[in-house]
Design a protein around this nucleic acid. Structure first.
Lengths: 220, 220
DNA sequence: GGTATATTCAATATTTCAATTGAATGATTG
DNA sequence: CAATCATTCAATTGAAATATTGAATATACC
């Protein structure tokens, strides 16, 4: 028998990946990076966490092969290593959804009640985009919108939604999206739009999935 | 304390799942349970770990929704919560394979050199099983074989391979499999069979994937 | 070159995790 | 009902992860 069995060595590596995913803040970083490469600076601001802290998490993630870093001028820009990282996060999310009662509780309490109608699938949105009979709303903050969005989408951050209601065409259906499947902002937007009489629905998931599915992305 | 944001609450749950996957021994338990429900006793024996230790890991995994337990007489039988758990483990493995140089090194050193021929896919094996022109070898220990195996497979544990070489039909191709993609035993078996002049290949992955793909399983 | 800015490093205190041991519980058997 | 077996619990110890702080390094800009 070989002293360090190859199997154990491999499992240690797999465990390293999983363990590194096992931190809420790092999952949040992956959600952000799922939208595109970002600097440490910007990520720290998004998370509302100290820069040194975020930097350390990113380095931990780099050691585990989840992200890669590249220096651009005085910024260090991190990005996801590849699509498999998002896939892994999705797989973990599914385990939690299926088997943790706690998740069900949270989702019911905060999300489901606000989404009585079926969310719109990516395929459906792609189709309706071609017809032009739909208004697509990107409710993320402006900086995230600028770094990449669904072509033709209007950027209406949640904070500005009420102010810009008047500019929306009440005849068209509205589809709102934000970062990912559990991004609260799109739920909130749909709920407020409906309250104003709009026909609003939510995209089933967010920007990262849109990109991962090979859809077109526009940047301004 | 005001309740934390639903998003953070969710991410904590996701992180719990990932963190729980982040231990080599627990991954090994999942590999074992991927073959079917097992008692604490048997799992401990398989891992060569103290029972109390394994029991604790299993309870940790139960809290994270990865496994479920059921009392059967004086045994407590654990099983995977559902298919999503194996899917998550697979997704994590993929991240590691794609992005960790260390994994590549281990695989190259221990596995690849012993597998110059392409492994057989599940689909291919299903087809050739119908033709009957292939000998399927299950090289796992007898107890694991008994709890479920590919229909028509011969159980030849690695330890008995040499002794039973004479009983194998040299005219037929041989396909060997064991637990999972990285289960060393099937590599070893193929290598030894080839050294004896047999036409031997390895199934691309193992028992859990065979089951997950909805293939038939026989038990003796 | 000097200074501001972005990021990383290093040291520390705190918390959490893991393995070990022996005792306690629950179910079965005689 | 005692004895036995499988499992879990509880307490302890050592190891590892995390957040926090302030200093160090690199790059750009003036």
């Amino acid at each position: 028998m070989s002293s360090p069995s190859p199997k154990l060595a491999l499992f240690k590596q797999f465990a390293l990946v999983a363990k590194t995913l096992g931190h809420p803040q790092r999952l949040e970083l992956i959600e952000q990076l799922g939208q595109g490469p970002r600097s440490v600076d910007l990520l720290a601001e998004k998370l509302g966490a100290p820069i040194a802290n975020v930097s350390q998490h990113l380095q931990t993630m780099r050691r585990a092969g989840l992200v890669a870093a590249e220096r651009q001028g005085k910024f260090v820009v991190y990005r996801l290593a590849d699509d498999s990282v998002l896939a892994a996060m999705k797989a973990i999310r599914r385990v939690a959804e299926n088997n943790l009662a706690e998740v069900d509780k949270i989702v019911r309490g905060y999300f489901e009640e606000r989404d009585s109608l079926e969310p719109v699938t990516r395929e459906e949105l792609s189709g309706r985009l071609r017809d032009g009979m739909v208004t697509v709303l990107d409710v993320r903050p402006a900086d995230e919108f600028e770094l990449g969005h669904v072509p033709g989408a209007l950027n209406v951050p949640l904070s500005e939604l009420d102010a810009r209601l008047a500019t929306l065409d009440p005849e068209k259906d509205i589809v709102a999206y934000c970062r990912g499947a559990y991004c609260v902002m799109s739920f909130e937007a749909v709920s407020r739009l409906r309250a104003q009489g709009f026909s609003a629905r939510r995209l089933e998931d967010g920007m990262p999935e849109w990109v991962a599915a090979g859809n077109a992305v526009a940047s301004s």
